[in-house]
C-alpha cells in the first residue's frame, strides 16, 4: 500500500515536472526576454503549478529525509520559466520558513543545541553572505553549471555517506570543552538518557566556511552538508545533528535571504505559493511516513535530484 502510494505520488510529481518543463519551453526562459507566451496564461497559472509541485516536493522532502530547499532550487530553476535569481531568493525563504517552523520545538526538546549552533552559525551565516554576493555577481550560466555540479555532488554524498546514530567521541577537544559544547537528551525509542560531547571542532568549523558559501551562492538549504559534518566529523549524535542542522538553517539562511531580498530577488507571487505548498506537503509527508518505505523514497529523491542536476548543467552550458 505504501509502495503504491509512493509510486502514484512519484508519477504525479514527474508528470507535473515534465508538464511544467514543457510549458517552460513554451513560456521561454531566456534571460531578459519578456515572453509573450508566458503572458498567454492567466496570472494564476504558474503560481498554481508552483503550489502543486512544491506540495509534492514537501511530501518527498519529508519521506526522503532532505530539506525542501535542496529540492526546490534545482527543480524549479530547471523546469519553470522563473529566472535563477528569483528561484534562489525564493528557495532561501522556503528553507528559512521550514527552519523557523521546526526550530522552536527542536530547541525546547533539547534536540537542537543552541551552544553547538551559535559558533557554527556565526561562521556559516557570515560565509553565506559572501556566497550570496558571489552568486549574484557571477553570470547566470556559471551559477547554473556550479549548481548542477553541486547537486550531482549532493546525490553522490547521499548515496555514499553512512550516518552514525551515536558516534564514538573518546575525548572532547579543547575548544568544545572551553565553549562547553555538550549536552544531554532522551532517546525516545529506548528512553535512555544520552550525554553527548563533540570533537574535531576546529575542522568542523572550517568546513562550515564552505557550507555557508554554497548555501548563500545557490539558495539551497544546507542540511545535506550540515548533518554529515556535525555527525561524522564533529561526532554529535545523529538526532542532535539533524535537529541542530535544521535550526542552524534559520540563522544561515537569514543572512543570505537578506542579501537576496535587498537585491530585489523576491517576488511574493512565487514565495507564498511555494511556502504554503511545501509546508502543506510536509504535513502530508509526516502522515505518509508511517506507511512509506523510506529507502525507496530516498532513491526516488536521489533520482529526481540527479535529473535536476544534469538539467542545470545542460542549461548552464546552453544545451
Amino acid at each position: 500500500m505504501g509502495l503504491r502510494t509512493i509510486l502514484l505520488l512519484s508519477t504525479l510529481l514527474v508528470l507535473m515536472v515534465f508538464f511544467a518543463g514543457d510549458m517552460g519551453v513554451l513560456a521561454g526562459t531566456g534571460e531578459g526576454v519578456v515572453s509573450s507566451s508566458s503572458s498567454s496564461h492567466s496570472w494564476w497559472f504558474w503560481p498554481l503549478v508552483l503550489f502543486i509541485v512544491t506540495f509534492l516536493m514537501g511530501i518527498f522532502a519529508v519521506l526522503g529525509g532532505v530539506g525542501g530547499g535542496v529540492l526546490f532550487v534545482p527543480i524549479i530553476s530547471g523546469f519553470f520559466p522563473f529566472h535563477l535569481d528569483f528561484v534562489r531568493g525564493c528557495g532561501l525563504l522556503v528553507a528559512l520558513s521550514g527552519a523557523l517552523a521546526a526550530g522552536p520545538g527542536l530547541l525546547k526538546a533539547n534536540l537542537a543545541s543552541l551552544r553547538l549552533a551559535i559558533p557554527v552559525a556565526l561562521i556559516a551565516s557570515t560565509c553565506a553572505i559572501i556566497g550570496a554576493m558571489i552568486g549574484l555577481a557571477l553570470p547566470t550560466n556559471i551559477v547554473q553549471i556550479a549548481l548542477g555540479a553541486t547537486i550531482i555532488g549532493i546525490c553522490i554524498l547521499m548515496v555514499s555517506t553512512k550516518k552514525s546514530e551515536l558516534p564514538e567521541v573518546p575525548v572532547a577537544d579543547r575548544l568544545s570543552t572551553a565553549l562547553r559544547i555538550y549536552g544531554v537528551y532522551q532517546e525516545g525509542s529506548s528512553g535512555e538518557i544520552i550525554n553527548w560531547k563533540i570533537h574535531r571542532t576546529p575542522l568542523g568549523l572550517a568546513l562550515f566556511i564552505i557550507i555557508g558559501i554554497m548555501a548563500g551562492m545557490f539558495g539551497l538549504g544546507a542540511g545535506w552538508a550540515n548533518v554529515p559534518v556535525l555527525n561524522l566529523v564533529m561526532g554529535a549524535p545523529l538526532k542532535i545533528s539533524v535537529a541542530t542542522s535544521k535550526f542552524l538553517l534559520s540563522i544561515t539562511d537569514t543572512s543570505a535571504a537578506w542579501i537576496y531580498l535587498n537585491q530585489g530577488c523576491v517576488i511574493p507571487m512565487m514565495v507564498v505559493p511555494s511556502l504554503v505548498g511545501i509546508m502543506l506537503g510536509s504535513f502530508v509527508g509526516v502522515k505518509l511516513l508511517v506507511i512509506a518505505k523510506p529507502v525507496i523514497v530516498r532513491w526516488i529523491v536521489i533520482g529526481m535530484l540527479a535529473f535536476a542536476g544534469v538539467k542545470a548543467l545542460l542549461k548552464g552550458f546552453g544545451i
Binding site: 513560456a27 521561454g28 526562459t29 531566456g30 534571460e31 531578459g32 526576454v33 519578456v34 515572453s35 508566458s38 503572458s39 496564461h41 496570472w43 497559472f45 504558474w46 520559466p81 522563473f82 529566472h83 535569481d85 528569483f86 549574484l136 547566470t140 537585491q263 530585489g264 530577488c265 517576488i267 507571487m269 512565487m270
Partner: peptide, 8 residues
Amino acid sequence: SKFWSMNV
C-alpha cells in the same frame, strides 16, 4: 509573468 523570467 513578464518579469519573473528576467534577471533581477
